[in-house]
Structures are given as C-alpha cells and as structure tokens.
C-alpha cells in the first residue's frame, strides 16, 4: 500500500502483454499479405541468382527450385516426420503448461518457496539442450518420451515465468475487493489469480511454441533414428549423412512451418476458449 491517495500512476498497466485481437480491415490484411509475399519472392530470386551466378554445386547451396523439388520428391517421408515432430512438440508444450501451471501455483502460495526454487527454474533456461540430451538418453532411453522430456525442459521456463508473473499481476482494486469480502486463499486463487494469469500463460505458450519445436528436433538428433521413430530431426541427420543438402533445406523449411503451426494452434486455442480472459474490461 502506498503512503497517500493512489493516483493513476499506481494502477497496474492493463494493456501490457495483452495482445488482444486486432480486427483489421481487409485492405490492411491484403497489404500485409502482399508485402510479405513480395519480400519472399525477392528473397528467393536473390537466392536463385546467387546460386546461378556462382554456379554453385547443389551440395553447397541448391536453388529454391531444387529445394522444392527435393521436398516434393520426399513429400511422404517429410510429412510423416513433420507430423511426428509436431506431435512431440505439441505434447511437450501441453506437458510444460501443466507442470508450469502447477509449479507457478505453488510459487504463488509461498514467497519462501518462490525464493528458494525460482532460481532453479531459471537454471532450466540455461541448460544447453544439446548437452543434456545424451544424459536424458542414458536415463530415459531411445523413446518418444525422451524427446518430450527434452522439449519440456526447453519450453518450461517461459511458461513458469509468465504464469508466475500472471498470478502476481492482479489489479490492486481486484485484490482489495476480494479482501473486503473475506475471500479465502483458494477463492482468490481460483476466481482471481488464475483467470488473471491466463493472458500471461498464453503469452508464455506463444514463446514456447517455437522453443518446443526446437527442443523436439534437437532431441530427435539424439533420440530418433532409423525405422522405429522418425521425426524431422532424424530426417535431417540422415539427409546430412547422405549429403543431400537440398532435402536438408527442405526439412529446415518444414521445421519452420511447424513452429508457425504450433504458434497458430496456441493462438487458435486461446481465441476459441480463453478470449474472455484476454480482454481488458
């Protein structure tokens, strides 16, 4: 509480971190689609000319056309592997949200626990996933599970961090309201803190959607191989081994699309089921 009358400055910012839905006009949408397309076409053209002018062999840098052809030729493999990786990333994200939610709720209930354990959550962020993946294989084996664990480790931090922030970010008036009517801790948590934190959770999940794909692919470099479990990571190492640079770049493009797809999924779920929590009143 402050020493004097609260003024406007004391109110928490209501708009920060709340990216709401912009209902732009169709012209605006058309314009942005156009400009993105123009940049893409220009980029591909430069790439193509670069390869042609220097007459680079395909193994060093294939043209966009060669990449597309290589991807198309392997489309079945590529799509199957993308699905495997997408599934791993989505499961990891869901698990991370679950674990992150529980951790954050525990943190929100005790300042002591938060002080004691939060630094270890930060530690998660600094763990080099490449270094920990071989260890995970020792402990967890060559399983789908290991991929999920690695991806969860990499995407847990933004989620815990955001939910923890969200649970502490209730507006002063709302907190006062709950205190005034003698709300219990559980009531405050369920009716105020959790609904407030959903916006933050979605923000964290958006950040983590890209990380989950990265984590899954990196883990697949170590875990998935051959015939049993083939994700994009396995395809990438295989095609690298076969010196098929064009296919490798196609897989790279696919992994980027996966990140976008997961990002879109998170946004879609947020919009469908949680839009009431992301509104500013």
């Amino acid at each position: 509480m402050r020493s004097s009358d609260r003024t406007d400055n004391d109110r928490l910012p209501e708009t920060s971190n709340k990216p709401g839905l912009n209902h732009r006009g169709w012209q605006d949408a058309l314009f942005s689609t156009l400009s993105v397309t123009v940049v893409a076409v220009f980029g591909l053209l430069v790439w193509h000319l670069f390869v042609r002018i220097f007459d680079l062999p395909k193994i060093l840098l294939p043209t966009p056309g060669q990449v597309a052809a290589a991807g198309w030729q392997r489309r079945e493999e590529l799509l199957m592997a993308s699905w495997v990786t997408f599934y791993a990333a989505a499961v990891s994200l869901a698990v991370a949200i679950l674990i992150g939610g529980v951790l954050s709720i525990i943190f929100s209930q005790s300042r002591m626990l938060r002080r004691a354990f939060f630094p270890y959550v930060i530690f998660l962020q600094t763990v080099p996933i490449v270094a920990i993946a071989p260890l995970l294989i020792i402990w967890s084996g060559y399983e789908f599970r290991t991929t999920v664990i690695a991806a969860v480790i990499i995407c847990l931090f933004p989620i815990v961090n955001n939910i923890t922030t969200g649970l502490q970010s209730c507006r002063t008036e709302h907190r006062d309201l709950f205190r005034l009517y003698g709300a219990s801790r559980l009531q405050t948590l369920v009716r105020l803190q959790i609904p407030t934190s959903i916006t933050y959770l979605l923000l964290g999940a958006r950040i983590s959607s890209g990380l989950a794909v990265i984590g899954a692919i990196v883990a697949e470099f170590f875990v998935s191989n051959g015939s049993v479990y083939v994700g994009l990571g396995a395809l990438m190492t295989r095609w690298q081994g076969l010196s098929q640079t064009d296919a490798l770049i196609a897989a790279l493009g696919m992994s980027t699309l996966l990140g976008l797809a997961l990002f879109g999924l998170v946004n879609g779920i947020g919009w469908l089921f949680f839009s009431r929590y992301t509104r500013v009143d």
């Binding site: 062999p57 193994i59 060093l60 076969l242 010196s243 098929q244």
Partner: peptide, 12 residues
C-alpha cells in the same frame, strides 16, 4: 560411397 553421394549432389 561418399564419393558417389557427393557426385550425385553435383560436387565434382
């Protein structure tokens, strides 16, 4: 076998 792979990818 690597030589063959390299050549298949346009590397002389």
């Amino acid at each position: 076998d690597d030589v063959v792979l390299f050549r298949a990818q346009g590397a002389e």
